[in-house]
């Protein structure tokens, strides 16, 4: 393991942080969504897939996996936000009708962590993830 880690460069650590953030997103989403009628299996699948891809990169640095993981993070992020449009509408109109305005803070906080995963993964794409031999 130490020999593997010895080869890793900064980009790899961004991927690790992205995956860690995604785990947090996954846990938060899965604990929040069922109680607010907001569960979406595709979001869960996207996050899990991205995390798995990032884990694979521990042993195998593959550019395509970076791209695919960004796709998954982006999907989870935007699907989560668009699923909750009603809550945002309520929040900005000052009413409670289309969604649940009280949840906007939670929705945004989950989205922010998801966005962090996506941004970190994109940044990692531009960076070296393994040291040059």
């Amino acid at each position: 393991m130490s020999s593997i880690m010895a080869k890793k460069a900064a980009g790899f650590y961004l991927i690790v942080i992205a995956a860690a953030a995604a785990v947090i997103s996954l846990i938060r989403f899965c604990t929040w969504a069922p109680a607010h009628n907001a569960m979406d299996a595709t979001i869960v699948l996207a996050l899990v897939a991205a995390i798995v891809m990032n884990l694979i990169m521990v042993v195998k640095d593959e550019d395509i996996l970076v791209v695919f993981s960004v796709v998954c993070y982006a999907y989870a992020l935007f699907r989560h936000l668009t699923n909750q449009v009603g809550s945002f509408v309520d929040a900005f109109q000052g009413i409670n009708m289309f969604g649940d305005a009280t949840q906007v803070g939670t929705i945004v906080s989950i989205a922010v962590v998801m966005a962090a995963s996506a941004v970190l993964a994109i940044a990692a794409g531009f960076m070296r993830r393994e040291k040059e031999v």
Partner: peptide, 23 residues
């Protein structure tokens, strides 16, 4: 061979594509 430039650009463009599709 790895390509940082094209990996990054592919990631970025994929991100935008997903945004526009879901949006």
């Amino acid at each position: 061979k790895h390509s940082r430039l094209w990996t990054g650009l592919s990631s970025l463009s994929s991100f935008c594509l997903v945004l526009s599709l879901v949006g």
